[in-house]
Amino acid sequence: MNWVLVIVGGMVGAPLRYLTDRAVQARHDSGFPWGTFTVNVVGCLVLGALTGAATAGAASSHLQLLLGTGLCGALTTYSTFSYETLRLAENGARPQAAANAIVSVAAGLGAAFAGVAAAQSLWS
C-alpha cells in the first residue's frame, strides 16, 4: 500500500514538473531556468504545508507518502537544478549561475517556512 502511494504520487509529480517547465520556459527568452525554480518553490510550499498539517495531526501518514514522498518529491528536483546551474556557468553566465543557486535555496526555504506557518495557523 505504501509503495503504491509513493508510485502514484511520483507518476503525477514528475509529469507535472515536465509540463510546468515547458510552459514556463516557453514564456520567456532569458537563459534563466525559471521552470525548475517554479516547481521547486511550489513543491517546498506544498511539502511545508503538509508537514505542518501532519504535526497538527491533520495529515495521515498515507497522505504524507502520497503527497510528500511521492508528489512533492518527484515534482521538485535537485539534479536538474544543479545541472542547469552548471550549464549557466559553462555558458559564461556565472552571475546567473550563482544567482540561481542562491535564489533557489533561499526561495525554497522561504516557501517551506511559509507552508509550515500557514498549516499551523490553520490547524491550531
Binding site: 515536465y18 517546498c44 518527484a74 521538485t76 535537485y78 507552508g115
Partner: peptide, 22 residues
C-alpha cells in the same frame, strides 16, 4: 525525458531538502 527528467528528477528532491532544514 524518461531517465533525465523522470528517473533522476523523481529520485532527487528539493522539497525534502528545504523542509528538513526548516
Amino acid at each position: 525525458p524518461f531517465f533525465g527528467t523522470g528517473v533522476l528528477g523523481g529520485f532527487t528532491t528539493f522539497s525534502t531538502y528545504a523542509v528538513d532544514i526548516q
